[in-house]
Simulated assay, not measured.
Amino acid sequence: MNFLVDHHTVTSIVYKLRSAGCVFAEEETQLLVSEAQSLEDLTKKVEMRVEGLPLEYVIGWALFCGLRIEVEQGVFVPRHRTEFLVRQAEDLACSGDLVVDLCCGSGAIGAALAAAMGDIMLYGSDIDPIATRCARKNVTKFGGHVFEGDLYEALPRWMRGRINILVANVPYVPTKAMELLPLEARLYEPNLALDGGVDGLNILRRVVKEAPDWLAPGGHLLIETSEMQAPQTIEVFAHSGLVTKVVRDAERDATVVIGTNSGDSPPAL
């Protein structure tokens, strides 16, 4: 911010945001003021937020694992609960590992892992061109690469049987539950990144089915799911031959299923 905002203006913004239903009106006001380039820009940003546009789209970034992750309208906004997935992957990863983030969205998971680990080979893929464009902005600074395409089809063949850490925050909202999502998500975030089909596990099944062919021996697949879907997810993992466990953080309402490839040799190229 390179201009002054008086107390009356700040109070007015807080009132507008609170009237629009923003629970954290004071905190959002501080962010809007700090990110605005001029009083005119601030007014525009406030109006966008009052009209319901998610705050992250208004300011252009989301805070995730201590990083400013660039987001643009039409890209899934990374959730704080997914930081639990990152921490689980970090505990399993080693220096020099090949790490792949499927359904990478903004690239937040991969960027956070690279920031924490430093020396990893990072790749991501997403079917949405808006997401892949956004992800590249976030992961290239860590030496990462992003491919556009449908899950594994986007990945180079040389990765087959060599991935050490495979993370995927796939869409897992059951179709009928989409109408129960917060209004901001339903109106502005892409359905492609949210709707997981009838039981919410359509994309997850596809990821898990092929995972053993892509994981290195001892490699790990980590997928975020809901507490309610965890039993079904465990069955899907186990059916693919992965050694499976579930971990949960009740405070974040975060559930992650982890599958380990017990194979002892990589498949032939």
Rank of each mutant, 00 (worst) to 15 (best):
Arg206Thr: 00
Thr225Lys: 06
Glu184Trp: 04
Pro190Cys: 03
Val256Pro: 03
Gly197Met: 07
Gly200Asp: 12
Leu183Val: 14
Leu180Asp: 14
Tyr188Phe: 12
Trp214Val: 04
Lys209Glu: 11
Pro190Gly: 00
Lys209Leu: 15
His220Arg: 07
Glu224Ser: 00
Glu224Trp: 06
Pro182Trp: 08
Glu189Met: 07
Gly200Leu: 04
Val198Pro: 05
Leu180Trp: 12
Val198Cys: 14
Leu194Ile: 01
Leu221Thr: 07
Glu251Asp: 14
Leu187Val: 10
Glu189Trp: 02
Glu227Ser: 12
His239Val: 14
Thr225Asn: 04
Leu194Ala: 06
Thr244Gly: 04
Val247Pro: 08
Pro190Lys: 05
Ser240Pro: 03
Lys245Pro: 08
Arg248Leu: 00
Pro212Arg: 07
Glu235Asp: 07
Ala216Pro: 03
His220Gln: 11
Pro212Thr: 05
Pro212Ser: 15
Leu215His: 02
Leu187Gly: 14
Lys209Cys: 10
Leu221Ile: 03
Trp214Ser: 06
Trp214Phe: 13
Val198Gly: 14
Ala185Trp: 09
Gly241Lys: 00
His239Ser: 15
Leu183Cys: 12
Pro190Thr: 09
Thr233Val: 07
Leu222Glu: 06
Gly196Lys: 06
Arg206Met: 08
Pro212Trp: 13
Phe237Asp: 00
Ala238Glu: 14
Ala250Phe: 10
Asp195Leu: 08
Phe237His: 07
Asp199Gly: 03
Arg206Pro: 05
Thr244Ser: 06
Asp195Ile: 02
Asp213Gly: 12
Glu224Arg: 02
Glu227Trp: 08
Gly219Ala: 11
Arg186Asp: 08
Glu184Tyr: 10
Ile234Trp: 06
Val256Ala: 05
Pro171Tyr: 05
Thr244Ile: 02
Asp213Phe: 13
Ser240Ile: 13
Leu204His: 03
Thr244Glu: 10
Val257Cys: 02
Lys209Thr: 03
Pro174Asp: 02
Lys176Glu: 13
Asp195Gln: 09
Glu189Arg: 00
Thr225Ile: 01
Thr255Ile: 02
Ala211Asp: 00
Lys245Glu: 10
Leu201Pro: 05
Tyr172Trp: 01
Asn191Asp: 15
Gly218Lys: 09
Val198Leu: 13
Ala238Ile: 07
Lys176His: 14
Arg205Leu: 10
Gly218Glu: 12
Gln232Leu: 15
Ile234Met: 09
Thr244Asn: 07
Tyr188Glu: 01
Met228Cys: 15
Ala185Gly: 12
Val247Ala: 05
Gly200Ala: 04
Glu210Lys: 06
Glu179Met: 15
Gly219Tyr: 02
Ala211Glu: 05
Leu242Ser: 04
Arg186Asn: 06
Ala185Lys: 02
Arg205Cys: 09
Glu179Leu: 12
Lys176Ala: 08
Ala177Pro: 13
Glu251Gln: 14
Glu251Leu: 12
Pro231Glu: 00
Val208Met: 05
Leu187Met: 15
Ala250Ile: 11
His239Ala: 15
Ile223Tyr: 02
Arg186Lys: 10
Val257Pro: 05
Pro212Lys: 08
Leu204Ile: 00
Ile203Thr: 06
Met178Lys: 03
Glu184Pro: 07
Ala238Leu: 13
Val208Phe: 08
Gly218Tyr: 11
Ala193Asn: 06
Asp213Trp: 11
Val243His: 15
Val173Ser: 01
